[in-house]
């Protein structure tokens, strides 16, 4: 998937090793034709993919998840109601890969929390 069609980065910063991205979910992404017809909801897997894409941008390396220890989806993200979001990512690198802890939130609530391991490829 070309993640540029799914979201765009508006701003980014790093404080004490925590990467923070202000992003916007694009409403014209092709995925909404099917998820769901006439009722756009951002797929959980696309938000997980967005976190991998942002981590790749930070590390300047291609990644593949080897495991997702836990991913809690606690709110519904839609390109209409919640397009502007903050993605927080903490990355611990090791030989051959990294561990990722991430959260997607806005000022109102948290939508997704992810703990995963990824490998470089």
């Amino acid at each position: 998937m070309n993640w540029n069609t799914y979201y765009e980065i508006k701003d980014s910063s790093i404080v004490d090793g925590l990467h923070s991205f202000e992003i916007r979910i694009k409403s014209d992404c092709d995925v909404y034709r099917g998820h769901f017809p006439g009722h756009p909801i951002s797929p959980g897997v696309c938000n997980i993919g967005m976190i991998r894409d942002l981590t790749e941008k930070v590390l300047q390396k291609k990644l593949r998840f080897s495991s997702i220890k836990q991913c809690r989806l606690t709110g519904m993200i839609t390109p209409i109601n919640t397009p502007e979001l903050t993605v927080l990512i903490y990355i611990a690198t090791s030989e051959g890969g990294c561990s990722i802890k991430a959260e997607i939130k806005d000022s109102e609530k948290s939508y997704l929390e992810l703990k995963a391991d990824a490998i470089y490829f």
Binding site: F36, R64, F65, S67, I68, C71, L73
Partner: peptide, 16 residues
């Protein structure tokens, strides 16, 4: 009806 993922745990990828 719409079904949503609430949580994914212990997801291991063997081969894509």
């Amino acid at each position: 009806v719409l079904g949503y993922i609430g949580e994914i745990k212990k997801c291991i990828f063997h081969r894509l």
